[in-house]
Design a protein around this nucleic acid. Structure first.
Lengths: 158, 158
DNA sequence: CCAATTGATGGGCTGGCACCCACTATAGGG
DNA sequence: CCCTATAGTGGGTGCCAGCCCATCAATTGG
């Protein structure tokens, strides 16, 4: 048999490739998947990074604020916060003004971790966006940002 | 209740929004999710459309070819093909040259369905890409296409 | 003609993710 | 004081996509 190709030289249907929807979904999934892998190596998930980022960017805040900001399920956040706290990346403290609330803050270790994760994300980005030069990446970033902003009513998920 | 924000009165962390990886993943997921919903209304999934598209674009072919082209698990394809055949969108016939193979071809009904699905995909696309004008969408499409092509070795999954 | 390979299929396992409920503790208004 | 609402937590459920295995039929090579 002439099954010679280590790489399948077969192409995807143009009918699909014509759809930005499809490309967006596929490229997005690839990006997500690759980054998730890296996180998994450290026993982390996407939400962990999202929480760290929110805390680093906006400072200590109650879980309810994180819930609203990140559109995460309160119960799920509790689990994420639990894990992050156990690993020493965040600290939790009862809010003295309202003792129902638990204020979460990022530790130095958490900040260090976040920085590393950002670096990893950029590595993945370099892999995924390899075909584009710096200027094109800039354009892409700007377009994606506008798309993202334009649709505030999108549902959660990381 | 709180699950609905008229406005995202709260913003996402810039640390995340700076990452094309993140935007790609998020926008991609939104696009995928929205389109999946439409497909689900018809009892279809993404693979169904992918298979129809491959058949329409490249003509009748054995399942093994679809497996390679779409990087789908053979077993899963069997199920998809089964469902599509039951609904009359494709026809299956034993290849006379090699009776192990099952040649799949799209029916007129299948072509009609595909056309409708494409229309639906464009509707979703219009929703998702609403903030961009025609020219910008063109740029985005072109960039995404290059990104997609640049990474031939990405692993499967539609 | 036998052995190894390939194509197709059915079944079933798995991990991740979103979602939901019950329960406790606290707060705040009548 | 009650009564209701809110914040956090633990536990559990359901869905879906990807994957692997066993099996059967057909082909191919020795």
């Amino acid at each position: 048999m002439a099954s010679e190709n280590p790489h399948p030289a077969v192409e995807l249907p143009p009918t699909l490739l014509d759809l930005s929807t499809y490309l967006l979904s596929r490229v997005g999934k690839a990006a997500r998947g690759r980054f998730s892998e890296r996180l998994a190596e450290r026993g982390l998930r996407l939400w962990d990074m999202a929480v760290l980022a929110a805390l680093a960017d906006f400072g200590p805040q109650a879980q309810r604020d994180l819930v609203r900001r990140l559109a995460i399920d309160p119960s799920d956040l509790a689990k994420v916060a639990d894990q992050l706290a156990a690993a020493g990346y965040v600290e939790r403290a009862r809010d003295q003004a309202d003792r129902r609330r638990v204020s979460v803050s990022v530790t130095d270790a958490g900040r260090a971790l976040l920085a590393e994760l950002q670096a990893q994300a950029r590595v993945v980005q370099d892999e995924v966006l390899a075909p584009l030069d710096a200027g094109e990446r800039q354009v892409l970033q700007e377009l994606l940002l506008r798309v993202h902003h334009g649709a505030g009513e999108w549902r959660g998920g990381l």
